[in-house]
């Protein structure tokens, strides 16, 4: 049995490859055999700089490597996004509850992603892509700040071309060279013609998820079948540090993915 403090020990492992997604976002491919569920996260350490939680963004059934997509927002993510192939990172995990993969089988699925929120949903979509027969119709609704901020563009093109899913993309601002949609991601719900029996998976800024969930409820979706991925300050990932508490919940291990029936009350109270 490991002591509490030993659970904070990282495994040091090699970064096999890096891929720039956008100006401020990079995907690291890390050598690791640790299995994970879509929606779970790892704690990544840049030696000497610090540690932060990063969701898995890679295929859940490809053994030997993990993908982690990191947006540069602070000192640690600055260091992590500057990592070169062959460098070493510290990794521990996976932590948290992921997306309800078993429940997705046989169901229509609507995936709504805002900004970097597409990264924690990518493992779900990759799993769907590998096994389209197991799922109903899938719609992927993606919102980004500008066309330059759209993540995983080559994936989006491939998914859009596949018959397994419909892909809709919108941005908040664009100049006249953009031929796609401009407006919030919830405006895509009309063209996507969502089946009220669908399971919805939402990840993005909390305000976006709140509005999207409200619109999905209005379309007749069950609050137990709308899932959101919450973000709070997670320093340890294992319920020790206390920072990620949201009311009675430790987001790090009771989340980050929770059904809307649970999240709605927690999001209702400001500064809970």
């Amino acid at each position: 049995m490991s002591t509490t403090i030993e659970r904070l020990a990282a495994t040091w492992t090699r970064v096999a490859a890096t891929r720039r997604e956008t100006a401020d976002t990079v995907t690291l491919t890390i050598e690791s055999d640790q299995p994970f569920r879509p929606g779970q996260f790892d704690m990544l350490t840049a030696l000497g700089v610090g540690e932060c939680p990063v969701s898995h963004s890679g295929h859940p059934r490809i053994a030997g490597v993990h993908e982690h997509t990191i947006r540069r927002v602070g000192a640690v993510t600055n260091a992590l996004t500057a990592i070169k192939p062959g460098d070493t990172v510290g990794i521990r995990g996976p932590y948290g509850r992921g997306w309800p993969m078993e429940d997705l089988v046989g169901s229509d699925i609507v995936v709504i992603a805002g900004g970097i929120g597409l990264a924690p949903l990518r493992p779900v979509i990759l799993a769907l892509e590998s096994d389209p027969g197991s799922y109903g119709r899938a719609a992927l609704l993606v919102g980004a700040r500008t066309p330059e901020d759209i993540q995983f563009t080559s994936d989006l093109d491939r998914w859009n071309a596949s018959s397994a899913m419909d892909v809709f993309v919108t941005v908040d601002r664009a100049d006249e060279t953009w031929v796609g949609s401009v407006g919030v991601v919830t405006r895509l719900l009309d063209p996507a013609a969502i089946n009220p029996e669908s399971i919805a998976l939402l990840c993005g800024p909390e305000i976006m998820m709140r509005f999207a969930a409200t619109d999905l409820l209005a379309l007749g979706l069950d609050p137990d079948r709308i899932y959101v991925s919450l973000e709070r300050n997670m320093e340890c990932g294992i319920g020790l540090c206390g920072h990620c508490q949201l009311g009675p919940m430790f987001v790090c291990w009771q989340g980050p993915v929770v059904p809307w029936s649970v999240a709605a009350d927690l999001m209702r109270v400001p500064e809970l």
Partner: peptide, 9 residues
């Protein structure tokens, strides 16, 4: 019990 976790070099 709350703690913060800090790395220093």
């Amino acid at each position: 019990f709350c703690t913060s976790i800090n790395d220093t070099a």
